[in-house]
Design a protein around this nucleic acid. Structure first.
Lengths: 193, 193
DNA sequence: TAACTATGAGACAGACCTGTCTCATCACTC
DNA sequence: GAGTGATGAGACAGGTCTGTCTCATAGTTA
């Protein structure tokens, strides 16, 4: 069997690193631990990723891509914006309840890499702005652009806050309250039909 | 001069560690760096704090106390709850604009110490619940207890989300949108006078 | 068969980590 | 002057960190 042109070892390292970073954090997870868990030689890892930082960026970008694809699948044409936004909150409710939930990897990355010039920081900003943009374009169906931007930012804050509360063990109340607040805000800003 | 009964070296270490943790994170800040910056012998530190983890908890508790005292000073009897809540958001607006703002140290601690049994994790939960309780007791003046709990949680989520967006360089828009949403939610839940 | 590529295995360097230990010093008290 | 308690200075242990290096091996391709 010819291995796939872009090696599957590479992807395996990314996915293993993701699990470990999620559980223990970035600085606390050593390269040795990653290669042991992935059952891969150290040089194999360093041939694919020139440094740990670049591996971290790769892991974040990979997760951002998976996240986007999942939300893409939820998006269904022809349903009202309220329902589209509601599905995004429902997705988070399911995430909070999942077995291996440990909070938001991107928020955690921001905590450990606070320098705005750092590639990891930039990867986080990309992901968060992506989610905001997604919600904004949904909202633009029923409100002017500037208003949609504001409401999208508010919804993003509710989601981020809910994720933090969920990590502190208040998942159910958090997503319920956040969802309710979000629906109220969207309704209040909606252009009357 | 007799040194104060509870040594001032101890407090000096706490404050130095706070600045370093805030800038670089917890794992990335070594003991050697802390004692160098505080200009203190290593044994002096370890005589006061049995381990780095306990120093971290001390730093967090110290910051939580300072935070509480600052919000206490803002609380003025006789003004309506809306205004009391508004002042909390204003406090955050000023914080976001301050020179050395690097996001929320407690949220960062949660990112690096995700084990719910860890003393650092518990210190974070204490602080966040404290802020929620503060807002809840303000809201109970004008709405029933259960409603106040829900609204307080929502305001907390807005604040946490705004802090995260502020760290990503969107401080002004974030606090403006969060404040506006908060005021709307409180108004909608207010028991009519 | 020969060449090429990806990988495995692990030694190694050099730095950094937390935490312990000893010994000297200094200020204050009795 | 003797004793006491807090501190300074730094060596030290034992471990872990990232990243580099060499050499062997296996599988595919020409």
């Amino acid at each position: 069997m010819t291995p796939s042109p872009v090696s599957d070892k590479r992807q395996h390292v990314v996915e293993t690193a993701y699990v470990l970073f999620k559980r223990a954090g970035f600085h606390a997870t050593g390269i040795d631990r990653i290669i042991a868990e992935a059952d891969v030689a150290k040089m194999t890892m360093y041939r694919h990723f020139p440094s740990k930082d670049e591996l971290i960026v790769e892991v974040l970008d990979y997760r951002a891509m998976r996240f986007d694809r999942q939300l893409d699948r939820l998006a269904q044409e022809g349903i009202p914006p309220e329902q589209k936004i509601g599905r995004i909150f429902d997705w988070h409710a399911r995430w909070f309840r999942s077995a291996d939930f440990h909070g938001c990897l991107f928020a955690h990355a921001l905590a450990e890499f606070g320098d705005p010039g750092h590639p990891v920081f930039k990867a986080v900003v990309r992901q968060k702005n992506g989610l905001k943009r997604r919600m904004r374009s949904i909202l633009e169906e029923v409100m002017p652009r500037g208003r949609a931007e504001s409401v999208a930012a508010t919804l993003l804050m509710l989601i981020e806050g809910a994720t933090l509360l969920a990590q502190m063990g208040q998942a159910d109340a958090a997503i319920r309250d956040a969802r309710k607040a979000a629906m109220g805000i969207v309704a209040a800003s909606r252009r009357p039909q």
